[in-house]
Nucleic acid binder design. Structure first.
Lengths: 195, 195
DNA sequence: CAATTTATATACCGTTTGGTATACTGTGAA
DNA sequence: TTCACAGTATACCAAACGGTATATAAATTG
């Protein structure tokens, strides 16, 4: 068994995710994935059963990693300032270390309807929202002004995270994902632009 | 000439945009568009030359309308609070009246790479960013604390707008795009969550 | 050593893809 | 009445699509 050396399964996952991020799921063919990964189509179908199965496994691996990290970061919601920093740091780190996945995530996050990538991502994005929502729910119990705005805060938090990461992809400027940026975003989030 | 009555060209545009929004550009075939629009493929190719030509015209029509509205709303950047409201109102109104287009816009906004929808949208999204950026550039001249954070503000503004519209599409709750929501978002933007 | 399982490739399938050659039809101008 | 042209449809194309039947070679297991 050469799989420990060659590890074709992992190669297929990495290659496919890269192509999906660059061109979009539907624009990438199974043959293109096979060629780029240096294998043949039946090998891909042996491991994943279908193109959709391949996407499903990619989503499972990365979302579970990301959401697990996010859950750790959200485990001390009593300190909203600290938790804001930690959660944003998780997003930025994941974007820096797993560019392809986060690029793909961003391009599917606001999808809706019959799109395959949306349907398969939904369970994870729902979990993601609820983790963040919980932070603001707890925060509302001791920061009165948040009360009634928990959903708004959740929405804004994710929106800002995505916007910053999107800007990083657009410009390539890594300082957009630095601690300094998080401090500024947090300052603005907590005290507004006049602070 | 029945075109004034039937108006097949307009029908194709509306139908195609609806399918693109629901399933994604690459997942929709020209035959599917033709069938849904009640015409045949050659008719579509007569008007638009190619599938890409059709997409291009859709983007041109809607982005030009949206950006023209946005420019009007941004014409008094001396009052940042007022301008914030006006610009957000433009986005929300367009989302309410042209659901399909904004849905499609959201799903392509954070794209990058070789994706056709990204490449064809880019000229418009660049213009969009620069309109908003200009507002914060002017604001920075009289609100000292904004200085150096113009790009951050632009990024945040667009991120928040998209997040709110995305939440509306997700839940169907129209109050997410009400004046009341804009007031809250503005309050948070200007003074933070403690306000 | 024989049987089975894992991992791979060759060669193929029916269907769908974006796109077109060609012909027809109704309308307005000369 | 003839002509041109805008608009539309029938019927087709080569290429690419997602997926598979089958063979094969190496490794694991009895």
């Amino acid at each position: 068994m050469l799989s420990e050396i060659t590890d074709n399964k992992q190669k297929i996952i990495t290659t496919a995710l890269n192509l999906f991020a660059k061109k979009g799921y539907d624009a990438v063919s199974t043959l293109e994935i096979a060629n780029a990964a240096g294998i043949t189509k039946p090998t891909m179908y042996y491991y994943f059963g279908s193109k959709e199965g391949l996407l499903s496994e990619i989503l499972s691996i990365h979302y579970n990693r990301l959401l697990s990290d996010l859950e750790s970061a959200a485990s001390l919601p009593e300190d909203i300032a600290l938790t804001f920093f930690r959660m944003m740091r998780i997003y930025f780190d994941y974007a820096l270390k797993n560019k392809d996945f986060i690029m793909f995530k961003l391009s599917t996050f606001n999808r809706i309807g019959e799109d395959v990538t949306y349907l398969l991502s939904r369970e994870y994005t729902d979990r993601e929202s609820s983790i963040i929502k919980h932070v603001f729910d707890v925060a509302a119990s001791y920061v009165g002004n948040i009360r009634g705005k928990e959903d708004l805060c959740t929405m804004t938090f994710v929106g800002v995270a995505h916007a910053a990461i999107g800007a990083y992809f657009h410009t390539g400027d890594e300082t957009l994902l630095s601690d300094e940026t998080i401090y500024r975003l947090r300052q603005q989030f907590l005290y507004g632009i006049y602070s």
